[in-house]
Amino acid sequence: MHIQTVAVQALRENEQEHGAVVPPVHLASTFELDPATSDGTFSYQRGGNPTRAQLEQVLSAIEGGGRAFAFATGMAATSAAFSLLGAGDEVILSASVYGGTYRLVTEYFPHQGLGHRFVDDLGELDDDSFTESTRMVFIETPANPTLRVTDLRRIVELAHAHGALVVVDNTFMTPVLQRPLDLGADLVVQSATKYLAGHSDLLAGVATTRDDALADRIGLAQKAYGAVLSPFDSYRLIQDVKTLPLRLERQQASAVEIAEHLRGHDAIAAVLTPGSHSAEEAAIQASQATGPGAVLSFELDPAVDRVRFLEALQIPAFAVSLGGVESLICHPASMTHEAMTPEAREVAGISDELLRLSVGIEDVRDLIADLDQALAAAR
C-alpha cells in the first residue's frame, strides 16, 4: 500500500473487536500481572504502554518495517542512538549538524570517554577517514540548515566496510520522501516534533531499525533512560501521522515555488535547497529521495536589514522548530545553532545572514506576497 493509506490504516485491525476507528488512550502507569508468574504484556508504563505500542506500530509501518521506539523528544532518540557507542569509540558527524546534537557531542562525549570528529563534507569521506575507533557515522541529509546532501548508499557501503554503524537523522525528509533503511542505514532517528506531529504542539522523537540486535539495545535504552513518550502524546501523534503525507505534499509544493521566486529576487543573495550546492548533490538527492522537502535557507543582500525584514513579516513566525502547518522562520546562528562557536559555524557554512524558512500550509500566494513586502520594507 502507498504511505498515505498505511498512515491511516496501520491500526485498523487492532480495534475490530470494538469497531472503533480511533484507538483509545491507555493512561495507566501500572498494569495488573499474573500472580503465579508475575507476567503480563505490560507491567509499568516506562517499560511499555498499549497506546505507545500502537504508535510504534504506526511509525514502523510508515518506515517500511522494522521496530520503532517512541521517545519524549528528538534529542532523546538521538541520545539512544549514541548509547550504542562505548568508551573509546568515535563518531563522525557533519560540521553543520543540528545544534542540539552538536551540544550533546561536544559537552557530554568527553565525560563519557567517547570521541567525535566533525567533517566539512561527509561526501568526501574515504577509507582514510576511518580509524580503528570509528564506530558510527551520524548523517543529516539534507543537512540543517545548509541543506547539503550526502550520498547515503556510498557512506553505508564505506562505513560498513570499516565496521561502523550508519545513523541517519531523517527529520527533514520523513519516510514520505526518503527511506534510509531501504538504502542500508542501520538506524533512523527523527524529531517527531516536526513533520510527524506537524502542529507545533507536542514534543516527540522516534528511532527505527530493522536490525533485531540493535532494536533490543535501543529498547533497553528507552526503558533505562526513561525518556518515553506519554500515552496522551502517543495518541495525538497517531492521529497527526494520518495527515503527514497530505501536509508534506502541500508544504513541499509551496517551498519549491517560494525558492524559485526568491532566486529571482534582487534582494536575495543566495537560496539554499537540497541539491543546490552542485549538480552532483542534485543527482544524489534525486536518486535517494522523492522530493526536496519543505525547508529552504537564504541569505539577504547586504543592502537589506535582516532585523527589519523579520519584523516586517506578517505570516511566518520568528521561531525555532520546523515542519508545522504554520510557516516559521529562524536565524540559525543565534537560535538553532547558537551552541556552536563562531568558528564552527563558519566552517559549517552558517553565516550570520543565513535565514531558514520552514514552509507551512498557508496559501503560497500569500506567503510570497508577504516575503516581497517585508523585503521591500527592509531595504
Rank of each mutant, 00 (worst) to 15 (best):
M75N: 15
R154W: 00
A36N: 13
H160D: 01
I258T: 09
E281Y: 00
N14P: 04
P110C: 09
Q314P: 01
F42N: 02
V359I: 04
A215L: 08
R236A: 06
A376H: 09
G349T: 02
V58Q: 10
Y195Q: 12
L296G: 06
P145I: 00
G184C: 02
V188M: 06
S230L: 07
S133H: 13
A377N: 07
L196Q: 14
A77T: 09
F172T: 11
Y98H: 14
I368K: 15
A303I: 10
R148D: 08
A72R: 15
G163T: 08
A76S: 15
I139S: 10
A303S: 15
G47N: 05
R217G: 01
H331F: 02
Q251I: 03
D121A: 10
A339K: 09
Q178G: 00
G64Y: 11
D201K: 11
L187P: 10
E362R: 08
K242R: 15
R46M: 03
G74A: 04
L203H: 13
D128Q: 12
D128H: 12
L165M: 13
H160G: 07
A369V: 00
G74Q: 05
C330N: 14
G264A: 09
V167I: 08
Q112L: 14
G19Q: 08
A221I: 02
P245H: 04
A312Q: 12
A376P: 00
N49M: 09
M335C: 06
A213T: 12
E362A: 03
